[in-house]
Measured scan of single mutants.
Amino acid sequence: LYHVLGLDKNATSDDIKKSYRKLALKYHPDKNPDNPEAADKFKEINNAHAILTDATKRNIYD
């Protein structure tokens, strides 16, 4: 999941948040209406963010 956000395992919560915002804006379906690959990437980014920002889920993942 870290690679989805372009981060390593030592990433801080701020790093995760910044990377998520940058990538979410880039791949958001509203910005890429005719690109199904961007929509899939956006879903991956959201999933990675949801797990890595939840301390319990992140510990389980790590």
Rank of each mutant, 00 (worst) to 15 (best):
K17R: 12
K22D: 15
G6S: 02
N32Y: 01
D40V: 15
K57F: 00
D14R: 06
G6F: 00
S13H: 03
V4N: 10
Y27D: 06
I45E: 09
Y2S: 03
T53W: 02
S19A: 13
D30I: 04
F42Q: 08
L1E: 10
T53R: 10
N59Q: 13
F42R: 10
D54K: 12
L7P: 08
L7S: 06
D8R: 04
T12P: 00
Y2K: 01
T53N: 14
D40M: 15
L7D: 06
K17Q: 12
E37G: 12
K41N: 04
L1K: 07
R21V: 09
G6P: 00
K41M: 06
P33S: 11
Y2P: 02
H3Y: 03
T53V: 09
A48K: 01
A39Q: 08
K17C: 06
F42W: 12
K41T: 09
I45H: 01
D8S: 05
H3C: 10
D54W: 00
A50V: 09
L1W: 06
L7G: 02
E44K: 05
D30P: 05
L52K: 04
K22P: 08
Y2Q: 06
K26H: 08
D8N: 07
D14C: 02
L1M: 13
K17H: 14
N32L: 01
I60F: 13
Y27M: 09
A48F: 00
V4A: 13
A24Q: 11
P29N: 07
D30H: 00
H49D: 05
N46P: 01
Y2F: 05
A55W: 05
A38P: 02
T53F: 03
A39V: 13
H49A: 13
D62W: 02
A24W: 15
D15P: 01
K43C: 15
P33A: 12
L23P: 04
H3A: 10
R58A: 12
P33K: 15
L7N: 04
Y20P: 11
K22E: 15
A11E: 00
K43M: 15
Y20L: 03
S13A: 11
Y20I: 02
N35E: 08
Y61P: 15
R58S: 11
D15S: 05
N32A: 06
S19I: 01
A55M: 08
D14N: 10
K18E: 14
P29D: 11
D54T: 03
K57S: 06
K9G: 09
K17I: 11
D15K: 10
N32C: 05
K31C: 01
I16Q: 04
K18L: 10
D30A: 14
N35V: 08
A38N: 07
T56K: 11
S13L: 12
D14E: 12
R58P: 11
D14V: 06
K22S: 15
K43H: 15
A24F: 15
A48D: 10
E44P: 02
G6D: 12
E44W: 01
I45G: 08
A48T: 01
T53P: 01
D30E: 13
V4T: 09
K43Q: 15
L7W: 00
D54E: 07
K26A: 12
